[in-house]
Structures are given as C-alpha cells and as structure tokens.
Write a protein that binds this DNA or RNA. Sequence first.
DNA 1: CCGGGGATTATCT
DNA 2: GATAATCCCCGGC
Length: 202
Amino acid sequence: MMKKLTLDFYTRKDVIQIARDLIGKILVTHLPEGITSGRIVETEAYMGLTDRASHSFGGRRTARNEHMYASGGSSYVYICYGMHQMFNVVTNEKDVPDAVLVRALEPLEGVEIMLKRTGKKKLDYTLTRGPGNLGKALGIHKGLSGLDLRDERLFIADDGFNAKPEDIVVTKRIGVEPAGKDALLPYRFILRNNKYVSARKS
DNA sequence: CCGGGGATTATCT
DNA sequence: GATAATCCCCGGC
C-alpha cells in the first residue's frame, strides 16, 4: 500500500539521515501523460550553508536556488548543463537550505510513458539511472520546482519496502570535484546491488 | 575497460 | 564570457 510521506519526515533537521531514509521510497509524478513512478535507489545530501558543493553555500541566495530556502517537504528543480532537469527534496525548516538530490530510480509504473518521454526503445538500466535521466523519464521540469511533495502531481510515498541497514551503501558524491575537500564527504547513499544505481566509481 | 570531449543553454559574474 | 550537483559516444588499449 502506498502512503504519501508526511511533513514530519521532511522537516527533520538531519538532511543526511533523510537522504538515507529516502532510499527505497517511491517517487511519483502524475502529469497529463499519466502516472509514472520509481523506487529511489540513489540519493545525495547537500548541507545548505556549510557545504561547498551546495548551491546555497554560505547563504548564497538567487532566483535559481530560492526554493532551497522553502520549508522541508517541497521540491527544488534546477537545470544543469543547460539541459538536465535535476530533482531535489527540500528538507529542514524554512530558510535553512538543505536538500537531497535524487540520483536514480528503479522504474515501477508508467514505463511506456517514460520510454516515450526519453525516446528510448525498451526498458533498460539507462532509463532512470542518473539525475538527468530520471528527471526526463518522469517528466520533471523547472516548472514543478517549489511544489509541496504531497501534491497530486509530484509526491513521494512509502509502500512498505524497508531496506536493511546493511544494504544501504555510503560513498562520496558524484560530479562535485570543484567543492574541494567537501567533495569527499560521505553524503551519497545507494541501494546495494541495484542495477539502476549510477555506475560510476565512488 | 577506460579516458576524453562534445552537446547545449540557464545562470551568474 | 565562463561555468555547470550530466550524459553519451567514440577511440584506444
């Protein structure tokens, strides 16, 4: 049974714990094309103010990252490299810009719709592996930034799946080398042995 | 298997 | 004008 995560899940202060807890949950979009969903198998935590890899490091606040400062339980979607729609879960209280980047899903509902959106011919591990790919497959775009994650169009739910603690692997984050020593922080969580996890070395 | 580079454009300086 | 929380393809071994 699917149960939307409630606000108290998101407003906790420990973004690292929330990133870990999101492993195994289900991300759902219900847009005009239909319902698409997938199980979250890879996340990264971004510790707003103190994390050089975060868009909001040092309190930086611009039109792009404004939604990071919303209260926990809303979305932050931004465009990377001019073409990829990156989906983040905003956590903590209002004005504390912590967020979790969702990096990979295992497809569940609406595979046909995802194939149409991505132009792929058949389901394989590339459909929802990597933040750019999953954003495209689920139809996520900048216009969905700032939504409450209990919205009908975009929400996260629990279906009772419970990852064993030993099946959650922790590594450093991907693609954040310019952040210097902060790039080495153990803020990435993946579900062990899942083929949809982005395949780069940790 | 691995590294290099091009795609493509919103965003910020 | 430079950069970017990426992805894909290609060539070399």
